[in-house]
């Protein structure tokens, strides 16, 4: 599988990233390099190999489903470019 310029343009549009037409060949090339990595990995036989979660034997931690933090509205919103009535305010994005 390989990515041509029109596919690269479509991916950019879906990601809402502006890409100038002259930059599309380079972008398509980068996508194809990434796909090349994935293809090379697919040649490895992993039959019967258990997934490894960590180099040291451990299980993912669990904890009680209780609130451990909170009541920090001011801190949470302190870096917001625009905050109103305790919420992040963002430009309208749905057409």
């Amino acid at each position: 599988m390989s990515i041509d310029e029109s596919t690269a343009a479509r991916v950019a549009k879906l990601a809402r990233i502006k890409v100038e037409p002259e930059a599309l060949p380079a972008l398509a090339h980068e996508f194809n390099t990434i796909l090349g990595f994935i293809e090379q990995l697919s040649e490895v036989n992993v039959d019967g190999v258990e997934p490894m979660t960590s180099v040291t034997p451990q299980r993912l931690k669990r904890r009680e489903d209780v609130v451990t933090d909170g009541d920090q509205q001011g801190a949470v919103l302190s870096n917001a470019p625009d905050a109103r009535e305790g919420f992040f305010a963002v430009p309208k994005v749905v057409e």
Binding site: S54, T56, Q58, L60, K61, R63
Partner: peptide, 10 residues
């Protein structure tokens, strides 16, 4: 660190 679920409890 309980704030990083992959942190080693050793």
């Amino acid at each position: 660190d309980p704030k990083d679920s992959t942190s080693a409890d050793l």
